[in-house]
């Protein structure tokens, strides 16, 4: 579904991504692990065109993406839930969802009812300003918003950040369910190792702008492996 080959990218001085190659199949959840500052968020932002790539290719279903604008990438079916959630605080919850219908491009978008079906708590908040929601509710809204355009690939950057523990678990279950039921390809960057290992089919480790290791989640339950790759 998503395939990335030899991707090189940077903000300005010196490349942050130094030849990243990876793939995520439909229905698969891949957790991207690594220490702070190795380029995980930069990789997600490069995939959606927010950071310019200098070399390499990004494909969805075999169709190459670069060099096109971020909104076109979104319309081709790649959705990013950014770090910090990116909720538009001074729009209502319903308008946040409505705004994202553009991402469907020529496909029919999800209705607001369909989009919030997994998040019953959002229903009564639809007319409220999105900025008034709690952290957990904002994260739910961010995921619902990403789903409105019926993406093929979902990129999640730190979905558990600033979210209370019971919602973290819910989000984990939902991520798994989205991959299993909608056939989404999901790439998740997550500091919460428990959440990452519980939802992922496969884990890949990034260091110094490259993918240095790939393996099943169970492998990362071993202390020695964790120490070697993540210095935990």
């Amino acid at each position: 579904m998503l395939s990335v080959d030899n991707l090189v990218a940077s903000y300005n001085a010196g490349p942050v991504l130094q030849g990243v190659s990876l793939s995520v199949q439909a229905g698969e959840v891949v957790a991207l692990l690594g220490r702070n500052g190795v380029g995980k968020s930069t990789l997600l932002r490069t995939l959606v065109g927010l950071v310019p790539s200098w070399n390499g290719s990004i494909r969805i279903d075999g169709t190459p993406l670069a060099p096109i604008a971020t909104h076109d990438i979104a319309r081709m079916g790649m959705a990013l839930v950014p770090q910090g959630r990116g909720i538009i605080g001074k729009l209502s919850v319903a308008d946040n969802l409505r705004a994202a219908m553009r991402a469907a491009g020529s496909r029919p978008a999800l209705s607001i009812d369909q989009a919030i079906a997994p998040f019953p708590a959002l229903r009564e908040k639809l007319p409220a300003m999105a900025g008034t929601l709690s952290g957990g509710q904002q994260q739910q809204l961010a995921i619902a918003r990403a789903m409105v355009g019926r993406p093929k690939v979902l990129l999640l950057d730190e979905p558990s950040e600033g979210v209370q523990p019971n919602i973290v678990q819910q989000i984990g279950q939902l991520v798994r369910k989205l991959a299993d039921e909608s056939g989404l390809a999901i790439l998740i960057v997550e500091q919460n190792l428990e959440l990452a290992l519980a939802t992922a089919n496969r884990c890949i480790v990034m260091a110094k702008g490259r993918i240095v290791h790939s393996g099943p989640p169970d492998e990362f339950r071993n202390e020695a492996v964790l120490r070697r790759h993540l210095a935990l």
Partner: peptide, 22 residues
């Protein structure tokens, strides 16, 4: 109007949800 209000508040997020901000 919705597109414009979204772009004004957060141009990057507007692009992420498929709005052609330019």
């Amino acid at each position: 109007g919705l597109d414009l209000r979204t772009v004004i508040q957060n141009r990057e997020v507007a692009e992420l949800v498929g709005i052609d901000s330019r």
